[in-house]
Design a protein around this nucleic acid. Structure first.
Length: 716
DNA sequence: AACTCATAT
C-alpha cells in the first residue's frame, strides 16, 4: 500500500498530460506500465483504448484539463454519447488530481449508473474494480485504501459530507447529470459553492446535458463552459395538427399505425402510470390481432419500476422475425413510464410516441401535503423523450400535441425537485452540515419561504431544533438516520416505550415500496391474504405482523408472492432495518429493546412510539361521522386499503392522499390521553382552534390534572 | 370503497 501511495504522489499534471498524449500513440507507449498499478497494460486495455480515442470528448480532454487547472469550477456541457462521463473523471486521475490521499468523487443520480460506470472505467484504466476505482452506494461500498476514483450516488456524497464537512478526502468533485437537478445534486451545489471559498485547492466539474448549461455557469460565478458534441442520430419530429382529446386512445392508435405503416424498428410509448400502461398494453394486444400477417407480430411489453425484475428484463428481448416468408419482421412496443426517459435505455427503439404527460410530485406547503399529479411535461423532457428514438439509427418521434402547444404551452424546463418537495429532511441535513442561515443559503432555485418555514416548524415540534433554530442533540441523532424526520423521531423515541426492535421493523417497512400487492385480476384474493396480517389497531401494526411473518418464512422465497406480498420490498425492508439497527446500536449507542410479547402493553407501547413521531398527523372523528385533521381541519376519510374496521375517535396517519377524496393512509388508532402526555407542546390549547377535538382534549387535560392531584394528596 | 412517476440516504 505504501508503494502505491508513493506512486500516487509522484503523479503530477505534467506527467498526467504526457500519459494522456501517449495513449496509444507509439509502440513504445504500448509497452508502457500502468501508472496506477505498476503492471504492464493488458491487451484488452489497448482494445478499449481504440474505442475511447473515437469518442467525441477525446479531443477535448486537454482543454477540460486546462480549464480545471486555471479555474476552481468548470461546467462541461455534453450530449448523450459524448463519453464525458467515463473519460473526464479518469483524465483527472491521470492528471494528478488524486494526490496526497485525496480522490476524485463523481456523483450520479442513480445507483445502477454509479455501479456500471465504475466497472467500465475500471476496465478502461486496466485496474480491478474496488481497488483504484470503486463505487459507493447505499448498502454497498467497493472503495478501499487504494481508491483514487470513486463513483457514487449524489445522496451518498451528501451523507459523506455530514461526517467530512469540508470534503477533505476529495480533490475534485464531479457532479454528473447535473441537469436532472435532483434534490441531492441541488443541495450539493449549494454546499460546494460555500466550500470552494474555504478550500482553494478544491475543484468542481459540473457536467450537464445541453440543457441550460449557462445557468450552471452563471450560478458558479461565470465558470468556464466547455461544450462537447454528442453522438446521436437525427430524429424526425411529427406533431398532431389538432390537440388530442384523449391521449390514451391517441397513443394506442398511433402505435398501431406505426406498426401497420412504418419500416422495421421498435416503438417506445410514454405514459404516466401502472394502471394506464397495463390498460394500453391490453388494447394494443387487441389491435395487433387486426393487422395482417405480412406486417409481422407485434409484441407488447409494459415497463414501470414496480414491475418484477424478470418482467422488466423482457423489454431487452429481440423482436420476433417475419410471420410469413418474405414478410416484415415483427416488432416490439414498450409502453413505459418516465423510467425509460433517463434510467433505462432500450436498444433498437426507432419510434417514440410522446403524449406529453407524466406524473410529477408536487408539494403544497399550505396543507403540508405532497401529491402526485398528471402534468404536461417540459420541452426539455420532450426533447429527451424524442432522443430515445435516435440511439442506434435515425428515428421518428410522434408528439400527440400540436407544434404550437410545444412552443407556447410547455414550460422550458421541468421544475427542479427542490421546488416540488417538502424540505424537512433537507433542512435537517443542512443544519447538521453547519448551515444555520437557510434563508440566505445560495440554492440555485430557492424553495418557497413557506416551504422552509413548514420544515423549521416541523423540526421544532419534533424537538430536533430548539426555538432559536439550533440543532438539538436529538436533532443530531435524527440527522444520522436515513429517514424522514417523523420516522426518525418515532425510532429514537421507541426505547422510552421499550419497543425499539419493533419500531425498527415498522420504520423499515414504511421506508420500502408498497409491500401489499393487489393485482387487478385478483383483488379479492389479495384482500383475503392481507387479513392474516391485520391488526385491529391499525396499519402500522399490520406492517409489523407482515414483517414478522416474512422473517418466519425466510427460507421459502415463494412465500411472499403466494401471500400477495412484494418479496422485493420485504428484502429491501430487511436491509434497511439492518442498516438502521447498526446506526442505532453502534453509532448512537441506543438500546434495542422489546416489551414482552405476552404483555398487554406490547402493542400499546408501539402505538405510543408512533404517536411520538407522528403527533402532527392526527385526525379526530367528528359527531358527523367524518374525520377532521387536527389543527388544519381538513375533512379526510380512512383509505379503503386500511385494516382499520371500526372508526376509532383518534387516529394518526402516515400520509395524506389526494385522489377521488382526501384519504389518510397507513393509519393507527391512538388514545387522546397519549397525545396530551407525549406531545403537550403541540396539543397546547392556548394555540388550538375551537372544535370538537379541542373539547375532548380539554376534558382529557382535566382528567389528567385531577389524577395528579389525587396522587399527590396524602394517603388516607 | 380503493387509481403510487422516478430517484436517493
Amino acid at each position: 500500500m505504501s508503494s502505491t501511495k508513493k506512486r500516487r504522489t509522484q503523479l503530477d499534471i505534467g506527467e498526467g498530460l504526457r500519459a494522456l498524449s501517449a495513449y496509444g500513440d507509439t509502440p513504445a507507449a504500448a509497452r508502457a506500465l500502468n501508472p496506477l498499478t505498476g503492471r504492464p497494460f493488458s491487451a484488452r486495455y489497448y482494445e478499449i483504448l481504440e474505442k475511447r480515442r473515437q469518442l467525441p470528448v477525446y479531443g477535448f480532454l486537454a482543454e477540460v484539463l486546462e480549464a480545471v487547472r486555471s479555474h476552481q469550477t468548470v461546467v462541461v456541457e455534453g450530449e448523450t454519447g459524448s463519453g464525458k462521463t467515463t473519460q473526464i473523471p479518469q483524465m483527472l486521475v491521470t492528471a494528478g488530481y488524486a494526490r496526497n490521499g485525496k480522490c476524485i468523487a463523481c456523483t450520479q443520480p442513480r445507483r445502477v449508473a454509479a455501479m456500471s460506470i465504475a466497472q467500465r472505467v475500471s476496465d478502461e484504466l486496466d485496474v480491478r474494480l474496488g481497488e483504484q476505482v470503486g463505487y459507493s452506494i447505499r448498502f454497498e461500498d467497493t472503495t478501499g485504501p487504494l481508491t483514487v476514483l470513486k463513483f457514487m450516488t449524489d445522496g451518498m456524497l451528501l451523507r459523506e459530507a455530514m461526517t467530512d464537512p469540508f470534503l477533505e478526502r476529495c480533490g475534485v468533485v464531479v457532479l454528473d447529470e447535473a441537469h436532472e437537478r435532483t434534490l441531492s445534486t441541488d443541495v450539493l451545489m449549494g454546499l460546494l459553492k460555500e466550500l470552494l471559498v474555504q478550500r482553494k485547492d478544491l475543484r468542481v466539474v459540473v457536467m450537464s446535458a445541453t440543457l441550460d448549461a449557462s445557468k450552471f455557469q452563471k450560478y458558479f460565478d461565470d465558470a468556464p463552459l466547455l461544450r462537447v458534441p454528442g453522438r446521436t442520430h437525427p430524429v424526425e419530429i411529427f406533431y398532431t395538427p389538432e390537440p388530442e382529446r384523449d391521449y390514451v386512445e391517441a397513443a394506442v392508435r398511433t402505435a398501431a399505425q406505426i406498426h401497420a405503416c412504418e419500416a422495421a424498428g421498435d416503438i417506445l410509448v410514454f405514459l404516466t402510470g401502472e394502471a394506464e400502461i397495463e390498460d394500453v398494453c391490453a388494447r394494443l394486444r387487441g389491435e395487433a390481432t387486426k393487422i395482417g400477417a405480412e406486417r409481422g407480430e407485434l409484441v407488447v411489453y409494459p415497463l414501470y419500476s414496480s414491475l418484477p425484475p424478470h418482467a422488466q428484463r423482457k423489454i431487452f428481448e429481440p423482436p420476433p422475425g417475419p410471420r410469413i416468408p418474405g414478410g416484415m419482421p415483427g416488432r416490439k412496443v414498450v409502453v413505459s413510464t418516465n423510467i425509460a426517459e433517463t434510467s433505462l435505455t432500450i436498444d433498437g427503439i426507432v419510434y417514440v410516441v410522446d403524449p406529453g404527460f407524466s406524473k410529477q410530485k408536487v408539494y403544497n406547503p399550505r396543507i403540508r401535503v405532497e401529491s402526485l399529479l398528471v402534468s404536461p411535461i417540459s420541452r426539455a423532457s420532450a426533447k429527451q423523450r424524442a432522443g430515445r428514438a435516435g440511439r442506434t439509427r435515425p428515428g421518428k418521434c410522434f408528439r400527440l400535441y400540436t407544434e404550437a402547444s410545444f412552443k407556447n404551452d410547455l414550460q422550458d424546463q421541468t421544475y427542479p425537485e427542490i421546488l416540488r418537495s417538502k424540505m424537512s429532511n433537507v433542512v435537517l441535513t443542512l443544519k447538521k452540515l453547519g448551515i444555520d442561515d437557510l434563508v440566505h443559503f445560495d440554492f440555485m432555485d430557492p424553495p418557497a419561504p413557506e416551504t422552509l418555514m413548514r420544515a423549521l416548524e416541523l423540526l421544532n415540534y419534533l424537538n430536533a431544533l430548539d426555538d432559536d433554530g439550533v440543532l438539538t442533540d436529538l436533532g443530531k441523532h435524527m440527522s444520522e438516520l436515513p429517514l424522514d424526520p417523523q420516522l426518525a423521531k418515532l425510532l429514537l423515541a421507541s426505547p422510552e416505550y421499550s419497543c425499539s426492535n419493533e419500531a425498527l421493523s415498522i420504520v423499515a417497512m414504511m421506508s420500502s415500496p408498497q409491500v401489499f400487492l393487489r393485482p387487478k385480476q385478483r383483488q379479492r384474493e389479495a384482500d383475503e391474504a392481507k387479513t392474516q396480517f391485520s391488526h385491529v389497531d391499525g396499519d402500522h401494526l399490520s406492517l409489523l405482523n407482515a414483517y414478522h411473518a416474512f422473517k418466519h418464512h425466510a427460507s421459502d422465497p415463494s412465500w411472499a408472492n403466494q401471500n400477495f406480498l412484494a418479496h422485493r420490498s420485504l428484502v429491501s425492508a430487511d436491509s434497511v432495518r439492518d442498516q438502521l439497527a447498526r446506526i442505532l446500536d453502534q453509532r448512537l449507542g441506543i438500546p434495542l429493546v422489546s416489551t414482552d410479547f405476552a404483555s398487554p402493553d406490547y402493542y400499546r407501547n408501539i402505538r405510543k412510539a408512533i404517536v411520538a413521531g407522528t403527533f402532527m398527523q392526527v385526525a379526530h372523528l367528528e359527531r358527523s361521522g367524518n374525520y377532521l385533521t387536527v389543527k388544519d381541519n381538513q375533512v379526510v376519510a380512512i383509505h379503503p386499503s386500511s385494516v382499520l374496521d371500526a372508526k376509532p375517535p383518534w387516529v394518526c396517519f402516515e400520509e395524506f392522499v389526494l385522489t377521488s377524496r382526501n384519504f389518510i393512509r397507513t393509519v393507527t388508532a391512538v388514545e387522546c390521553r397519549w397525545l396530551c402526555e407525549i406531545a403537550p407542546h403541540y396539543y397546547d390549547l392556548s394555540n388550538f382552534p375551537k372544535c370538537e377535538a379541542r373539547a375532548e382534549l380539554e376534558r382529557q387535560y382535566r382528567t389528567i390534572l385531577a389524577e395528579r392531584k389525587l396522587n399527590k394528596s396524602p394517603k388516607q
